[in-house]
Amino acid sequence: MLRGKTALVTGSTSGIGWAVAQAFAQQGMNVMLHGLGDPDANEALRARLEREAEVRVKLHSANLAEPAEAERLVIDTASQLGGIDILVNNAGIQFVAAVEEFPPERWTEIQNVVLNASFRATRAAVPEMRRRGWGRILNIASAHGVVASPFKSAYVAAKHAQVGLTKSVALELAETGITCNAICPGYVRTPLVENQIDAQAKVHGLSRERVVRDVILAAQPTKRFIEVEEVAALAVFLCGDMARSITGAAIAMDGGWTAR
């Protein structure tokens, strides 16, 4: 039932977003990829996905740190792909510092990319979904949308608020055929995390294996990374008919982290 639908996945030229975009395309969905970075590399990803999945794939480079860009991204998706059925708010950034040393401009940037872009994109997408009587909104939140860690005040605040946004939107849309849910992963194996392993190994003088187990995954009881394909598979399920009664949920995928 997903074949022929249109999905916008923010932050989808790498990591979780790319895996979700691939999984959607494999289901026969048309996809709007979104990301900054090397335009040629991103275009190569777009062309590859369109060729391999035999669906329509477009690419957008909206800077979600600029508030109005999220709305433009939704409008352009509907214009270029004929509508929008599924919105995945996945884009995110991180900065680590003690609260008294946290640069206010970085705080604002994180709120814009994680929280404000989710609100603005949702606000722009809902009218089209209402007209169709069907829609799926997924916010890729985090275990940090449920629990906190030190030195990540902006990210934790934004992710907690993103989960709150999810619940409120779900209640507003409960009788419309539109669901809104948050996926809350723990540490996922992405290029960003792989780089963190090398940096932590150097700082602590530990092997990569020790860093993974005792530093990166210290809070994750399974002591294994979540794979991006696992998150993507859950996203596909939540968009399907058998998930039509799941709305307003913050679904943990964190190896038991938030079960403590």
Rank of each mutant, 00 (worst) to 15 (best):
P221G: 07
A148M: 10
A232N: 04
E209S: 15
A141N: 10
R224E: 07
T176A: 15
R224Y: 04
A219K: 14
R208V: 01
A182I: 01
A143M: 13
I216T: 08
A141H: 04
A219Y: 13
F225L: 07
N195V: 11
V212K: 00
F225P: 01
L192F: 08
A218C: 02
A199L: 14
A174L: 08
V188M: 03
V211S: 00
G164E: 10
A141R: 08
V228G: 01
A218W: 00
V203Y: 12
G145Y: 06
A154F: 10
A219W: 09
R208T: 01
S207Y: 03
L206R: 06
T190N: 05
L192V: 05
D214A: 00
V156R: 06
Y187A: 01
R213D: 01
K167C: 04
S207N: 04
I226G: 01
T190W: 00
A201D: 00
Y187W: 06
G205M: 08
G145L: 13
A158K: 04
I197D: 00
K159R: 05
R208Q: 08
I140P: 04
R208G: 06
G205T: 09
T190C: 04
S153G: 12
T190Y: 00
T176L: 14
S149E: 14
A158R: 03
S168D: 15
R213K: 09
I140R: 08
L171Q: 15
H204M: 09
C184H: 05
A148T: 15
V236I: 12
N195Q: 14
L217V: 13
L206C: 00
R210N: 02
S142L: 02
E227N: 08
A174W: 10
E194H: 01
S149V: 12
L171M: 12
E175W: 09
K223S: 05
A143P: 00
G205W: 13
G205V: 04
A201Q: 07
V231F: 07
R189D: 03
Y155G: 11
R213S: 10
T190E: 07
S153N: 03
I216F: 02
I226R: 02
N181W: 05
E227W: 08
A141Y: 02
I140H: 03
G205D: 14
L173E: 13
D198R: 04
P185H: 07
I216L: 09
E229M: 02
K167A: 10
H204Y: 15
R224D: 03
P221R: 05
S142E: 07
V146E: 12
H160Y: 13
S149A: 12
A148W: 10
A157D: 09
N181L: 05
A182F: 11
H204P: 07
V236L: 10
T176C: 10
V211E: 01
S142H: 06
L192A: 13
A154Y: 14
K167N: 08
Q220E: 05
I226C: 15
K202G: 12
